[in-house]
Amino acid sequence: MDREQVLAYRIAAQGLHRTESDAAKLAVFDLGVQSTQRDTALVALAARCTDIDESFVDDPRFVLAWTHRGAPHFHRTGDLAAVTRALIPLDETDAMARMQWQRKQVEAAGMSATDGLFTAARAIRDVVGEPMTKGAVSTAVTKMIPAGLSYWCRGCHATHILEQVMRLAAIHGGVRLEAGVNPATLAPIEGRGRMRTKPDPAAATAVVSAYLRLHGPARPAEAAGFVGTTTNLAKAMWPDELAEISVDGRKLSLPSADLALLENPPEPDVVRLLPPWDPFLQSRDRAVLVPDKARQKEVWKIIGNPGALLADGEIAGVWRTKGSGRKRLDFTITVFDALPAPARRAAEAEAERVAKVRGFADVRVSWA
């Protein structure tokens, strides 16, 4: 098989043909929908649901929490307990890998990453009994944890708990994020039970299975990138009942149950404006999504990702917006290659859809 067939499969598997009216039934919630920037999750759902509006953030069927890689994700409320179990590190190597950019600080803390994670989780659980701003939680928790798990912040002129430790620990402390609230506010998860510290390999494997369903066919290294662990540990989480696929000479895996869709996916004849951190853009094999390295740098920035224009099975460009109060939303769409007129009209219709769900009455589209 080739990459075009893989992309057609992912477009279908992730619901981008927009045939579902109920957001809770979208397959992308099997992993969660990242919400790193204002309205990104809402726009991701607008690309997939026939009917969605801004009330999504207040829907009790969904909950926002720091989960995969410490990033904020919306999950189905009923799935959150399983997600929490999946986030318990399998061993110390796993715990340290999940610390990502703050591994060196955790290594210097004088305790294991596992102990540091759950020490912070217990402190967060004790502190957050009602909604509190992130800053207030950080201040209170920092006083309760070993000094090695905190750092001096020059900007604030204060000592804070390590950011990644706080993000990874919060869910284990039974704490979520308040959706649609600024500044970031933490609150206790309704009905939170006792804190679990024992690894749950089956729950971890379920996350990898979901990754393969939505972003496959793939290798352990790509699943590891999404989870935030090592390739060897992703292999330990590797599910059974997989089909081996050859894609452009690479041996990849896909759940056997999804093989029929890969073999005969619907035509990827859709045009969508995907927000930054959209599930489709979360595949760790970026060269499959965007083969050209220069274009990859346009889609995935170090700071300030744009949205991506999906047209007829390919990432065809990027887009950004600028709001004029709450009246008009201005779009600038930059295409990589000439775009046919029907695709341009479809993109402009998608811009109107995005503006509507974000609460803007008017829209203006500029092409570059």
Results as ranks from 00 to 15, higher is better:
Leu186His: 12
Pro188Leu: 10
Met195Glu: 09
Asp312Trp: 05
Arg295Ser: 08
Ala121Val: 06
Gly191Thr: 08
Thr334Phe: 07
Arg194Asp: 15
Val28Glu: 09
Ala221Arg: 14
Pro220Ser: 08
Leu309Val: 12
Ala170Tyr: 02
Arg76Ala: 09
Ala311Val: 08
Ala224Asp: 06
Glu263Trp: 03
Pro266Arg: 06
Phe29Thr: 04
Arg284Met: 15
Asp22Leu: 11
Arg219Thr: 07
Val354Phe: 10
Arg213Leu: 03
Asp39Ala: 14
Ala311Thr: 10
Gln14Ser: 07
Phe360Lys: 07
Gly249Ser: 07
Ala27Cys: 11
Ala316Phe: 13
Pro268Phe: 01
Arg85Glu: 14
Ala41Glu: 08
Asp94Ser: 01
Ala218Glu: 03
Tyr9Asn: 00
Ala210Pro: 04
Arg364Ser: 12
Ala224Asn: 10
Ile171Gln: 04
Thr67Asp: 04
Lys301Ile: 04
Leu233Tyr: 09
Arg98Thr: 03
Thr36Ile: 14
Val165Cys: 00
Asp91Phe: 11
Ala338Val: 14
Thr50Ile: 07
Arg167Gly: 00
Lys297Arg: 15
Ala343Ile: 11
Leu31Val: 06
Ala221Trp: 01
Lys297Cys: 01
Ala12Ser: 09
Asp2Asn: 15
Val83Gly: 12
Arg48Thr: 07
Asn305Gly: 09
Ala95Gly: 06
Arg76Lys: 13
Ala223Leu: 05
Leu80Pro: 05
Lys143Leu: 13
Ser256Met: 07
Gly193Trp: 10
Val299Met: 12
Thr19Pro: 00
Ala47Trp: 07
Val6Pro: 01
Ala170Gln: 02
Ala234Lys: 06
Val354Glu: 08
Thr334Ser: 15
Arg284Asn: 13
Glu92Gly: 08
Pro201Tyr: 06
Ala136Tyr: 01
Ala223Met: 04
Leu149Ser: 00
Leu45His: 11
Leu64Ser: 12
Ala71Ser: 14
Ser324Thr: 11
Ala368His: 08
Val141Thr: 10
Ala158Asp: 13
Asp22Phe: 08
Lys143Trp: 01
Arg284Lys: 15
Thr205Ile: 01
Ala13Gln: 03
Ala121Cys: 10
Thr185Val: 07
Lys251Glu: 14
Ala187Pro: 03
Ser246Gly: 01
Leu242Glu: 00
Gln105Ala: 15
Gly307Ser: 05
Ala206Met: 09
Ala234Tyr: 04
Ala121Asp: 06
Ala23Cys: 07
Gly116Trp: 03
Gln164Tyr: 05
Gly116Arg: 04
Leu42Met: 08
Leu254Ser: 01
Leu87Lys: 02
